[in-house]
């Protein structure tokens, strides 16, 4: 299977978008090279700003640009684009409901070698609690392109999270993805596996394994955790009643929590959450970090069976 980092999809699509619309800006913070905006900077210098290593300033500059009708993408690593800029996002971007997109590489455990300082495990959860924010993590290279395009053409503050490392390409070019709508990859009746980002490919593999054991799984790519596709979650509860959530993020306040909120209020259905076990990562191979947190095909299968 072909593997490409989703930051690559972002980097390519943002150039196309910038050419179509000269209001699309990129605000870089000296990591354009690793976040894949070098082509944008070269080809569209009038729509490009590099404010240096100054993320908080970048958030404010983007807000200012947005008040003047631009659609700026602030491009950084997920740790900095959520936590370093956090209050600036809240005050100047979300409270003001401006059309600023925070586009982040190095989501989750994917900057594996760099260690805990660079691994964003809280970002989506933190951003999810800020009113007006939309929070998205595409599942592959194709989805990254589609959702970046959707973000650019949909009004409002948004946080997009990409992988540093290569992950399998799971979608065909003609897949249709809509912000705020879960994408059903396959249907099933014994368990629903709801995943996002780099764990969707694990969910698909787990579903195959379960099928071998006679269990059929519905697999949902919940690329948008806010606004959450509440109807899709409700349908999982009503149709199946057993849900496993999978995410490359702390199990607190991310996809699993969002799903549990819906399920708890319904007063029906059971959920098992798979994700980072509320612990910091370390420098290690990505697969090892995922395994240490039980974010594996085997564990998805085990949790799905435990619900039966």
């Amino acid at each position: 299977m072909k593997k490409i980092a989703t930051r690559q999809g972002f980097g390519e699509e943002i150039v196309a978008l910038g050419k179509e619309d000269n209001g699309i800006y990129v605000v870089d913070v000296d990591i354009g090279k690793s976040c894949k905006t070098t082509d944008f900077a070269k080809q569209l210098p009038n729509q490009h700003v590099n404010v240096g290593i100054a993320e908080q300033n970048a958030a404010g500059v983007a807000a200012g640009l947005a008040t003047c009708g631009k659609t700026p993408f602030v491009v950084t690593y997920a740790v900095f684009g959520s936590l370093r800029m956090c209050e600036m996002i809240r005050q100047e971007i979300a409270y003001t409901n401006l059309n600023v997109k925070i586009a982040c590489s190095h989501g989750g455990l994917t900057p594996a070698n760099d260690g805990a300082s660079h691994q964003a495990i809280e970002d989506m959860g933190v951003l999810r609690t800020i009113p007006n924010m939309t929070v998205i993590m595409p599942a592959d290279y194709v989805a990254a392109k589609k959702l970046v395009r959707a973000a650019a053409t949909t009004y409002g503050p948004m946080f997009l999270r990409f992988t540093r490392d290569n992950i399998p390409v799971i979608y065909d070019e003609d897949v249709v993805l809509e912000i705020g709508k879960a994408h059903q990859i396959q249907d099933g009746k014994d368990v629903a596996i709801i995943a996002n980002g780099d764990t969707v490919c694990l969910a698909i593999e787990a579903a195959k394994k379960l099928a071998e054991e006679g269990l059929s799984a519905r697999v949902l790519d919940m690329h948008t955790i806010k606004p959450l596709d509440v109807e899709a979650v409700k349908a999982c509860v009503n149709d199946i009643g057993k849900i496993v959530t999978v995410e490359d993020h702390n199990i607190l306040n991310g996809l699993g929590s969002a799903v549990c909120e819906v399920v708890a209020e319904m007063g029906a259905g059971k959920v098992k959450r798979i994700g980072v076990q509320d612990q910091f990562g370390e420098s290690a191979p990505y697969e090892r970090l995922m395994a240490k947190n039980g974010i594996t095909i085997e564990n998805i299968v085990a949790q799905a069976k435990a619900l039966q």
């Binding site: 070698n113 260690g115 805990a116 300082s117 660079h118 370390e282 420098s283 290690a284």
Partner: peptide
């Protein structure tokens, strides 16, 4: 052991 799993020598100092 720089940047290896379990090492004192993390990718960034800890």
């Amino acid at each position: 052991t720089l940047r290896q799993e379990g090492s004192h020598l993390q990718g960034h100092p800890n």
